[in-house]
Design a protein around this nucleic acid. Sequence first.
DNA 1: ATATTTTTTTAGACTTATCTAAATTATACT
DNA 2: AGTATAATTTAGATAAGTCTAAAAAAATAT
Lengths: 219, 219
Amino acid sequence: MLTVSEENHLKAIFKISERNGTPVSTNKIAHELNTAAASVTDMLKRLSAKKLIKYEKYQGAHLTEQGNQLATRLVRKHRLWETFLVEKLEFSWDEVHQIAEQLEHIQSETLTERLDAFLDYPRFDPHGDPIPDRNGKFTLRKQHVLDSLEQGDTGIIIGVSNHDTDFLKLLDELQVKLGVTISILSKFDYDDSLKVRIGESAEHIIPKNISKNIYVKKA
Amino acid sequence: MLTVSEENHLKAIFKISERNGTPVSTNKIAHELNTAAASVTDMLKRLSAKKLIKYEKYQGAHLTEQGNQLATRLVRKHRLWETFLVEKLEFSWDEVHQIAEQLEHIQSETLTERLDAFLDYPRFDPHGDPIPDRNGKFTLRKQHVLDSLEQGDTGIIIGVSNHDTDFLKLLDELQVKLGVTISILSKFDYDDSLKVRIGESAEHIIPKNISKNIYVKKA
DNA sequence: ATATTTTTTTAGACTTATCTAAATTATACT
DNA sequence: AGTATAATTTAGATAAGTCTAAAAAAATAT
Protein backbone atom coordinates (compact mmCIF):
# COMPACT_ATOMS: atom_id res chain seq x y z
CA MET A 1 0.00 0.00 0.00
CA LEU A 2 1.37 3.37 -1.00
CA THR A 3 1.28 6.70 0.75
CA VAL A 4 -0.24 9.73 -0.90
CA SER A 5 3.20 11.17 -1.46
CA GLU A 6 4.49 8.00 -3.06
CA GLU A 7 1.48 7.97 -5.34
CA ASN A 8 2.02 11.57 -6.30
CA HIS A 9 5.61 10.90 -7.23
CA LEU A 10 4.64 7.91 -9.33
CA LYS A 11 2.05 9.97 -11.12
CA ALA A 12 4.52 12.76 -11.77
CA ILE A 13 6.99 10.33 -13.30
CA PHE A 14 4.22 8.86 -15.40
CA LYS A 15 3.09 12.23 -16.59
CA ILE A 16 6.54 13.49 -17.47
CA SER A 17 7.50 10.36 -19.34
CA GLU A 18 4.32 10.41 -21.42
CA ARG A 19 5.84 13.04 -23.67
CA ASN A 20 9.44 12.06 -23.78
CA GLY A 21 10.42 8.44 -23.35
CA THR A 22 13.79 9.12 -21.69
CA PRO A 23 14.42 8.75 -17.95
CA VAL A 24 12.78 11.42 -15.84
CA SER A 25 15.07 13.83 -14.02
CA THR A 26 14.90 14.70 -10.35
CA ASN A 27 14.45 18.36 -11.11
CA LYS A 28 11.51 17.81 -13.42
CA ILE A 29 9.70 15.81 -10.78
CA ALA A 30 10.47 18.44 -8.16
CA HIS A 31 9.08 21.10 -10.46
CA GLU A 32 5.97 19.07 -11.26
CA LEU A 33 5.25 18.53 -7.55
CA ASN A 34 6.45 21.87 -6.24
CA THR A 35 8.96 20.32 -3.89
CA ALA A 36 12.69 20.49 -3.29
CA ALA A 37 14.90 18.30 -5.44
CA ALA A 38 16.36 16.76 -2.29
CA SER A 39 12.94 15.50 -1.27
CA VAL A 40 12.52 13.89 -4.64
CA THR A 41 15.84 12.11 -4.34
CA ASP A 42 14.69 10.59 -1.05
CA MET A 43 11.46 9.45 -2.58
CA LEU A 44 13.14 7.99 -5.64
CA LYS A 45 15.17 5.78 -3.35
CA ARG A 46 12.04 4.65 -1.60
CA LEU A 47 10.14 3.91 -4.78
CA SER A 48 13.15 2.11 -6.14
CA ALA A 49 13.32 -0.07 -3.01
CA LYS A 50 9.69 -0.95 -3.64
CA LYS A 51 10.54 -1.83 -7.24
CA LEU A 52 8.11 0.69 -8.65
CA ILE A 53 10.80 2.59 -10.51
CA LYS A 54 14.25 1.94 -11.89
CA TYR A 55 16.57 4.57 -10.51
CA GLU A 56 20.31 5.12 -10.84
CA LYS A 57 21.96 7.99 -9.04
CA TYR A 58 22.28 11.03 -11.29
CA GLN A 59 20.63 9.12 -14.12
CA GLY A 60 16.96 9.82 -13.51
CA ALA A 61 14.15 7.32 -13.08
CA HIS A 62 11.58 5.42 -15.07
CA LEU A 63 8.61 3.32 -14.04
CA THR A 64 8.80 -0.44 -13.84
CA GLU A 65 5.94 -2.53 -15.15
CA GLN A 66 4.43 -2.54 -11.67
CA GLY A 67 4.96 1.18 -11.19
CA ASN A 68 3.37 1.88 -14.53
CA GLN A 69 0.35 -0.17 -13.58
CA LEU A 70 -0.12 1.72 -10.33
CA ALA A 71 0.35 5.08 -12.01
CA THR A 72 -2.15 4.14 -14.68
CA ARG A 73 -4.69 3.23 -12.03
CA LEU A 74 -4.21 6.63 -10.45
CA VAL A 75 -4.79 8.33 -13.77
CA ARG A 76 -7.87 6.18 -14.24
CA LYS A 77 -9.25 7.20 -10.87
CA HIS A 78 -8.41 10.85 -11.36
CA ARG A 79 -10.16 11.02 -14.73
CA LEU A 80 -13.18 9.03 -13.60
CA TRP A 81 -13.66 11.35 -10.64
CA GLU A 82 -13.31 14.41 -12.87
CA THR A 83 -15.95 12.96 -15.12
CA PHE A 84 -18.19 12.32 -12.14
CA LEU A 85 -17.78 15.84 -10.87
CA VAL A 86 -18.62 17.41 -14.21
CA GLU A 87 -21.32 15.02 -15.41
CA LYS A 88 -23.12 14.32 -12.17
CA LEU A 89 -22.33 17.18 -9.82
CA GLU A 90 -22.33 19.93 -12.42
CA PHE A 91 -18.90 21.27 -11.79
CA SER A 92 -17.26 23.10 -14.65
CA TRP A 93 -14.08 21.74 -16.19
CA ASP A 94 -11.92 24.37 -14.55
CA GLU A 95 -12.99 23.43 -11.01
CA VAL A 96 -12.42 19.71 -10.89
CA HIS A 97 -8.71 19.14 -10.98
CA GLN A 98 -7.90 19.99 -7.41
CA ILE A 99 -10.74 17.90 -6.00
CA ALA A 100 -9.86 14.94 -8.20
CA GLU A 101 -6.29 15.19 -6.91
CA GLN A 102 -7.68 14.24 -3.53
CA LEU A 103 -10.23 11.70 -4.70
CA GLU A 104 -7.72 9.75 -6.76
CA HIS A 105 -6.06 8.55 -3.55
CA ILE A 106 -9.13 6.82 -2.18
CA GLN A 107 -8.31 3.13 -1.89
CA SER A 108 -11.00 0.80 -3.11
CA GLU A 109 -10.89 -1.24 -6.28
CA THR A 110 -14.61 -1.83 -6.03
CA LEU A 111 -15.32 1.86 -5.74
CA THR A 112 -13.40 2.59 -8.92
CA GLU A 113 -15.20 -0.11 -10.86
CA ARG A 114 -18.62 0.91 -9.58
CA LEU A 115 -17.92 4.52 -10.40
CA ASP A 116 -16.86 3.55 -13.90
CA ALA A 117 -20.11 1.62 -14.38
CA PHE A 118 -22.17 4.44 -12.89
CA LEU A 119 -20.67 6.83 -15.43
CA ASP A 120 -21.32 4.31 -18.19
CA TYR A 121 -17.68 3.53 -18.92
CA PRO A 122 -16.57 6.89 -20.28
CA ARG A 123 -13.50 6.75 -22.51
CA PHE A 124 -12.55 10.42 -22.20
CA ASP A 125 -12.65 12.85 -19.30
CA PRO A 126 -14.00 16.43 -19.34
CA HIS A 127 -10.69 17.71 -20.74
CA GLY A 128 -10.67 15.14 -23.50
CA ASP A 129 -8.00 12.98 -21.91
CA PRO A 130 -8.45 9.25 -22.37
CA ILE A 131 -9.52 7.25 -19.33
CA PRO A 132 -7.66 3.95 -19.13
CA ASP A 133 -9.95 0.95 -18.74
CA ARG A 134 -9.61 -1.52 -15.88
CA ASN A 135 -6.79 -3.23 -17.72
CA GLY A 136 -4.90 0.00 -18.22
CA LYS A 137 -5.72 0.33 -21.93
CA PHE A 138 -6.11 3.86 -23.23
CA THR A 139 -8.37 4.62 -26.18
CA LEU A 140 -6.23 6.17 -28.85
CA ARG A 141 -7.44 8.61 -31.48
CA LYS A 142 -5.87 10.72 -34.11
CA GLN A 143 -5.48 14.22 -32.83
CA HIS A 144 -3.76 17.38 -33.98
CA VAL A 145 -2.60 20.34 -32.01
CA LEU A 146 -4.65 23.32 -33.09
CA ASP A 147 -1.54 25.37 -33.88
CA SER A 148 -0.63 22.93 -36.64
CA LEU A 149 -3.78 23.55 -38.69
CA GLU A 150 -3.63 25.78 -41.75
CA GLN A 151 -5.93 28.34 -43.24
CA GLY A 152 -9.09 26.65 -44.50
CA ASP A 153 -8.79 23.67 -42.19
CA THR A 154 -11.72 22.70 -40.00
CA GLY A 155 -11.68 20.52 -36.92
CA ILE A 156 -13.59 19.49 -33.86
CA ILE A 157 -12.17 20.32 -30.47
CA ILE A 158 -11.50 17.12 -28.59
CA GLY A 159 -9.12 18.02 -25.80
CA VAL A 160 -6.80 20.41 -24.00
CA SER A 161 -3.31 19.84 -22.66
CA ASN A 162 -3.37 22.45 -19.91
CA HIS A 163 -5.75 22.00 -17.02
CA ASP A 164 -5.08 25.20 -15.13
CA THR A 165 -8.16 26.96 -13.90
CA ASP A 166 -7.16 30.26 -15.46
CA PHE A 167 -6.44 28.73 -18.83
CA LEU A 168 -9.77 26.91 -18.89
CA LYS A 169 -11.68 29.99 -17.85
CA LEU A 170 -10.15 31.84 -20.75
CA LEU A 171 -11.23 29.06 -23.10
CA ASP A 172 -14.78 29.39 -21.76
CA GLU A 173 -14.60 33.05 -22.69
CA LEU A 174 -13.57 32.06 -26.21
CA GLN A 175 -16.47 29.58 -26.38
CA VAL A 176 -14.01 26.75 -26.65
CA LYS A 177 -15.69 23.55 -25.47
CA LEU A 178 -15.19 19.92 -26.33
CA GLY A 179 -17.18 18.90 -29.38
CA VAL A 180 -17.32 22.34 -30.91
CA THR A 181 -16.30 22.91 -34.53
CA ILE A 182 -13.44 25.29 -35.24
CA SER A 183 -12.40 26.66 -38.63
CA ILE A 184 -9.16 28.40 -39.41
CA LEU A 185 -10.03 31.62 -41.25
CA SER A 186 -6.43 32.74 -41.44
CA LYS A 187 -3.05 32.23 -39.89
CA PHE A 188 -0.68 35.12 -39.24
CA ASP A 189 2.94 34.49 -40.07
CA TYR A 190 4.04 37.13 -37.58
CA ASP A 191 3.41 34.97 -34.50
CA ASP A 192 1.42 31.99 -35.77
CA SER A 193 -1.74 33.35 -34.21
CA LEU A 194 -4.96 32.14 -35.77
CA LYS A 195 -8.16 33.83 -36.79
CA VAL A 196 -10.86 31.25 -36.23
CA ARG A 197 -14.57 30.74 -36.21
CA ILE A 198 -15.79 28.69 -33.26
CA GLY A 199 -19.17 27.04 -33.48
CA GLU A 200 -21.84 29.04 -35.25
CA SER A 201 -21.03 32.57 -34.42
CA ALA A 202 -17.92 33.61 -32.61
CA GLU A 203 -14.79 34.79 -34.42
CA HIS A 204 -11.55 35.25 -32.50
CA ILE A 205 -7.85 35.65 -32.72
CA ILE A 206 -6.13 32.84 -30.86
CA PRO A 207 -2.45 33.30 -30.02
CA LYS A 208 -0.09 30.36 -30.25
CA ASN A 209 0.33 29.99 -26.50
CA ILE A 210 -3.32 29.03 -26.42
CA SER A 211 -3.65 27.11 -29.67
CA LYS A 212 -0.73 24.89 -28.75
CA ASN A 213 -2.79 23.55 -25.82
CA ILE A 214 -5.85 22.59 -27.81
CA TYR A 215 -6.36 19.28 -29.56
CA VAL A 216 -8.63 18.87 -32.54
CA LYS A 217 -9.79 16.08 -34.76
CA LYS A 218 -9.48 17.16 -38.37
CA ALA A 219 -12.82 17.30 -40.16
CA MET B 1 -6.79 23.18 7.89
CA LEU B 2 -6.70 19.94 9.82
CA THR B 3 -4.77 16.75 9.23
CA VAL B 4 -6.58 13.47 8.78
CA SER B 5 -5.47 12.37 12.23
CA GLU B 6 -6.71 15.55 13.85
CA GLU B 7 -10.04 15.10 12.11
CA ASN B 8 -10.28 11.53 13.29
CA HIS B 9 -9.68 12.53 16.88
CA LEU B 10 -12.32 15.23 16.69
CA LYS B 11 -14.78 12.79 15.28
CA ALA B 12 -14.03 10.25 17.99
CA ILE B 13 -14.64 12.84 20.69
CA PHE B 14 -17.85 13.84 19.01
CA LYS B 15 -19.03 10.28 18.75
CA ILE B 16 -18.23 9.37 22.33
CA SER B 17 -19.84 12.45 23.77
CA GLU B 18 -23.04 11.88 21.81
CA ARG B 19 -24.13 9.30 24.35
CA ASN B 20 -22.84 10.69 27.56
CA GLY B 21 -22.44 14.41 27.99
CA THR B 22 -19.45 14.26 30.35
CA PRO B 23 -15.87 14.96 29.26
CA VAL B 24 -14.37 12.27 27.07
CA SER B 25 -11.49 10.27 28.52
CA THR B 26 -8.17 9.63 26.84
CA ASN B 27 -8.66 5.90 27.05
CA LYS B 28 -12.02 5.94 25.36
CA ILE B 29 -10.62 7.90 22.45
CA ALA B 30 -7.66 5.57 22.23
CA HIS B 31 -10.01 2.61 22.15
CA GLU B 32 -12.24 4.22 19.54
CA LEU B 33 -9.29 4.93 17.27
CA ASN B 34 -7.22 1.85 18.03
CA THR B 35 -4.23 3.82 19.15
CA ALA B 36 -2.12 4.11 22.28
CA ALA B 37 -3.35 6.40 25.02
CA ALA B 38 -0.08 8.30 24.87
CA SER B 39 -0.72 9.21 21.26
CA VAL B 40 -4.12 10.55 22.19
CA THR B 41 -2.65 12.72 24.92
CA ASP B 42 -0.34 14.31 22.37
CA MET B 43 -3.20 14.95 20.03
CA LEU B 44 -5.42 16.40 22.75
CA LYS B 45 -2.74 18.98 23.43
CA ARG B 46 -2.60 19.87 19.79
CA LEU B 47 -6.36 20.16 19.38
CA SER B 48 -6.51 22.19 22.53
CA ALA B 49 -3.87 24.57 21.19
CA LYS B 50 -6.06 24.98 18.10
CA LYS B 51 -9.04 25.72 20.36
CA LEU B 52 -11.05 22.85 18.97
CA ILE B 53 -11.36 21.16 22.34
CA LYS B 54 -11.23 22.10 25.98
CA TYR B 55 -8.72 19.87 27.69
CA GLU B 56 -7.36 19.72 31.23
CA LYS B 57 -4.74 17.19 32.15
CA TYR B 58 -6.27 14.05 33.63
CA GLN B 59 -9.75 15.55 33.24
CA GLY B 60 -10.69 14.48 29.71
CA ALA B 61 -11.75 16.66 26.82
CA HIS B 62 -14.83 18.11 25.21
CA LEU B 63 -15.40 19.92 21.95
CA THR B 64 -15.55 23.68 21.73
CA GLU B 65 -18.16 25.32 19.56
CA GLN B 66 -15.67 25.40 16.73
CA GLY B 67 -14.62 21.81 17.27
CA ASN B 68 -18.21 20.72 17.32
CA GLN B 69 -18.84 22.44 14.05
CA LEU B 70 -15.90 20.75 12.37
CA ALA B 71 -16.85 17.36 13.77
CA THR B 72 -20.42 17.81 12.61
CA ARG B 73 -19.20 18.60 9.12
CA LEU B 74 -17.19 15.42 9.12
CA VAL B 75 -20.23 13.43 10.17
CA ARG B 76 -22.20 15.16 7.44
CA LYS B 77 -19.65 14.24 4.82
CA HIS B 78 -19.33 10.68 6.07
CA ARG B 79 -23.04 10.06 5.96
CA LEU B 80 -23.56 11.76 2.63
CA TRP B 81 -20.85 9.62 1.07
CA GLU B 82 -22.35 6.48 2.58
CA THR B 83 -25.66 7.44 1.09
CA PHE B 84 -24.03 8.03 -2.27
CA LEU B 85 -22.30 4.67 -2.19
CA VAL B 86 -25.48 2.80 -1.38
CA GLU B 87 -27.98 4.74 -3.45
CA LYS B 88 -25.93 5.46 -6.53
CA LEU B 89 -23.16 2.91 -6.63
CA GLU B 90 -25.16 -0.02 -5.32
CA PHE B 91 -22.97 -0.90 -2.40
CA SER B 92 -24.61 -2.71 0.46
CA TRP B 93 -24.78 -1.12 3.89
CA ASP B 94 -22.09 -3.35 5.31
CA GLU B 95 -19.49 -2.28 2.71
CA VAL B 96 -19.56 1.47 2.90
CA HIS B 97 -18.15 2.46 6.24
CA GLN B 98 -14.50 1.97 5.45
CA ILE B 99 -14.69 3.81 2.13
CA ALA B 100 -16.63 6.69 3.67
CA GLU B 101 -13.92 6.95 6.33
CA GLN B 102 -11.61 7.97 3.53
CA LEU B 103 -14.02 10.11 1.58
CA GLU B 104 -15.01 12.19 4.59
CA HIS B 105 -11.57 13.79 4.60
CA ILE B 106 -11.85 15.25 1.11
CA GLN B 107 -11.66 19.02 1.45
CA SER B 108 -14.19 20.93 -0.62
CA GLU B 109 -17.23 22.73 0.71
CA THR B 110 -18.66 22.90 -2.77
CA LEU B 111 -18.28 19.19 -3.26
CA THR B 112 -20.23 18.45 -0.10
CA GLU B 113 -23.04 20.78 -1.05
CA ARG B 114 -23.23 19.46 -4.61
CA LEU B 115 -23.25 15.91 -3.37
CA ASP B 116 -26.06 16.73 -0.95
CA ALA B 117 -28.09 18.23 -3.79
CA PHE B 118 -27.32 15.31 -6.09
CA LEU B 119 -28.68 12.94 -3.46
CA ASP B 120 -31.71 15.15 -3.03
CA TYR B 121 -30.91 16.29 0.50
CA PRO B 122 -31.25 13.00 2.35
CA ARG B 123 -31.98 13.33 6.06
CA PHE B 124 -30.83 9.83 7.05
CA ASP B 125 -28.02 7.62 5.86
CA PRO B 126 -28.21 3.92 4.94
CA HIS B 127 -27.88 2.95 8.60
CA GLY B 128 -30.65 5.28 9.66
CA ASP B 129 -28.34 7.86 11.19
CA PRO B 130 -29.39 11.46 10.70
CA ILE B 131 -27.36 13.54 8.27
CA PRO B 132 -26.76 17.04 9.60
CA ASP B 133 -27.73 19.77 7.15
CA ARG B 134 -25.32 22.46 5.99
CA ASN B 135 -25.95 24.36 9.22
CA GLY B 136 -25.23 21.36 11.38
CA LYS B 137 -28.84 20.66 12.28
CA PHE B 138 -29.78 17.02 12.79
CA THR B 139 -33.28 15.77 12.09
CA LEU B 140 -34.58 14.29 15.32
CA ARG B 141 -37.15 11.54 15.57
CA LYS B 142 -38.52 9.43 18.32
CA GLN B 143 -36.79 6.10 18.36
CA HIS B 144 -36.68 3.12 20.65
CA VAL B 145 -34.06 0.49 21.04
CA LEU B 146 -35.55 -2.80 19.92
CA ASP B 147 -34.65 -4.50 23.20
CA SER B 148 -37.01 -2.18 25.06
CA LEU B 149 -40.13 -3.33 23.21
CA GLU B 150 -42.52 -5.75 24.87
CA GLN B 151 -44.56 -8.68 23.69
CA GLY B 152 -47.27 -7.49 21.33
CA ASP B 153 -45.41 -4.32 20.31
CA THR B 154 -44.86 -3.58 16.65
CA GLY B 155 -42.37 -1.17 15.14
CA ILE B 156 -40.59 -0.17 11.99
CA ILE B 157 -36.85 -0.56 11.81
CA ILE B 158 -35.27 2.83 11.31
CA GLY B 159 -31.65 2.44 12.29
CA VAL B 160 -28.75 0.50 13.72
CA SER B 161 -26.10 1.59 16.21
CA ASN B 162 -23.36 -0.79 15.15
CA HIS B 163 -21.86 -0.43 11.69
CA ASP B 164 -19.51 -3.39 11.73
CA THR B 165 -19.55 -5.41 8.55
CA ASP B 166 -20.09 -8.67 10.39
CA PHE B 167 -22.97 -7.32 12.41
CA LEU B 168 -24.69 -5.93 9.33
CA LYS B 169 -24.21 -9.13 7.39
CA LEU B 170 -25.92 -10.98 10.19
CA LEU B 171 -28.83 -8.55 10.05
CA ASP B 172 -29.13 -9.19 6.32
CA GLU B 173 -29.43 -12.86 7.15
CA LEU B 174 -32.25 -12.02 9.57
CA GLN B 175 -33.96 -9.94 6.87
CA VAL B 176 -33.48 -6.86 8.96
CA LYS B 177 -33.53 -3.81 6.69
CA LEU B 178 -34.53 -0.22 7.26
CA GLY B 179 -38.25 0.32 6.77
CA VAL B 180 -39.25 -3.22 7.57
CA THR B 181 -41.95 -3.94 10.15
CA ILE B 182 -41.04 -5.98 13.20
CA SER B 183 -43.45 -7.48 15.75
CA ILE B 184 -42.52 -8.85 19.13
CA LEU B 185 -44.14 -12.27 19.41
CA SER B 186 -42.62 -12.95 22.80
CA LYS B 187 -39.82 -11.91 25.08
CA PHE B 188 -37.84 -14.43 27.13
CA ASP B 189 -37.07 -13.43 30.67
CA TYR B 190 -34.07 -15.71 30.73
CA ASP B 191 -31.89 -13.40 28.63
CA ASP B 192 -34.25 -10.81 27.22
CA SER B 193 -34.05 -12.42 23.81
CA LEU B 194 -36.99 -11.75 21.53
CA LYS B 195 -39.09 -13.90 19.27
CA VAL B 196 -40.05 -11.62 16.40
CA ARG B 197 -41.73 -11.59 13.03
CA ILE B 198 -39.89 -9.48 10.50
CA GLY B 199 -41.76 -8.29 7.46
CA GLU B 200 -44.26 -10.70 6.02
CA SER B 201 -42.73 -14.05 6.64
CA ALA B 202 -39.62 -14.53 8.68
CA GLU B 203 -39.73 -15.45 12.36
CA HIS B 204 -36.56 -15.37 14.43
CA ILE B 205 -35.11 -15.37 17.87
CA ILE B 206 -33.04 -12.22 18.35
CA PRO B 207 -30.65 -12.16 21.29
CA LYS B 208 -30.20 -8.99 23.26
CA ASN B 209 -26.71 -8.28 21.95
CA ILE B 210 -28.34 -7.80 18.58
CA SER B 211 -31.60 -6.16 19.59
CA LYS B 212 -29.79 -3.54 21.60
CA ASN B 213 -28.24 -2.26 18.38
CA ILE B 214 -31.45 -1.83 16.44
CA TYR B 215 -33.65 1.26 16.51
CA VAL B 216 -37.35 1.16 15.78
CA LYS B 217 -40.16 3.60 15.51
CA LYS B 218 -43.11 2.30 17.48
CA ALA B 219 -46.15 1.60 15.34
C1' DA C 1 40.04 19.99 -22.22
C1' DT C 2 39.23 22.89 -18.65
C1' DA C 3 36.43 25.93 -16.21
C1' DT C 4 31.87 27.37 -15.21
C1' DT C 5 27.22 26.33 -14.50
C1' DT C 6 23.58 23.29 -13.52
C1' DT C 7 21.82 19.26 -11.56
C1' DT C 8 21.73 15.98 -8.16
C1' DT C 9 22.85 13.99 -3.92
C1' DT C 10 24.20 14.02 0.90
C1' DA C 11 24.03 15.71 5.50
C1' DG C 12 21.63 17.45 9.04
C1' DA C 13 17.44 19.46 10.88
C1' DC C 14 12.39 19.78 11.74
C1' DT C 15 7.36 18.33 12.14
C1' DT C 16 3.74 15.03 12.56
C1' DA C 17 2.18 10.96 14.19
C1' DT C 18 3.02 7.10 16.17
C1' DC C 19 4.88 3.68 19.78
C1' DT C 20 6.65 1.52 24.56
C1' DA C 21 8.09 1.97 29.19
C1' DA C 22 8.27 4.59 33.25
C1' DA C 23 6.35 8.05 36.21
C1' DT C 24 2.46 10.37 37.96
C1' DT C 25 -2.28 11.23 39.19
C1' DA C 26 -6.94 9.77 40.03
C1' DT C 27 -10.26 6.27 41.52
C1' DA C 28 -11.96 2.50 43.96
C1' DC C 29 -11.90 -0.61 47.82
C1' DT C 30 -11.53 -2.13 52.06
C1' DA D 1 -7.96 7.28 55.24
C1' DG D 2 -4.54 4.54 53.06
C1' DT D 3 -3.39 1.51 49.68
C1' DA D 4 -4.01 -1.06 45.46
C1' DT D 5 -5.47 -0.53 40.83
C1' DA D 6 -6.49 1.89 36.83
C1' DA D 7 -5.97 5.82 33.91
C1' DT D 8 -3.15 9.28 32.19
C1' DT D 9 0.89 11.71 31.14
C1' DT D 10 5.80 12.18 30.30
C1' DA D 11 10.04 10.77 28.31
C1' DG D 12 12.39 9.00 24.77
C1' DA D 13 12.43 6.47 20.34
C1' DT D 14 11.15 5.70 15.44
C1' DA D 15 9.51 6.47 10.60
C1' DA D 16 7.74 9.38 6.90
C1' DG D 17 8.13 13.38 4.54
C1' DT D 18 9.74 17.55 4.09
C1' DC D 19 13.32 21.46 4.08
C1' DT D 20 18.09 24.19 3.46
C1' DA D 21 22.91 24.31 2.80
C1' DA D 22 26.97 22.07 1.32
C1' DA D 23 29.27 18.68 -1.48
C1' DA D 24 29.66 15.99 -5.56
C1' DA D 25 28.75 14.79 -10.25
C1' DA D 26 27.32 15.87 -14.86
C1' DA D 27 26.55 19.04 -18.59
C1' DT D 28 27.88 23.12 -21.09
C1' DA D 29 30.54 26.55 -23.05
C1' DT D 30 34.53 28.74 -24.23
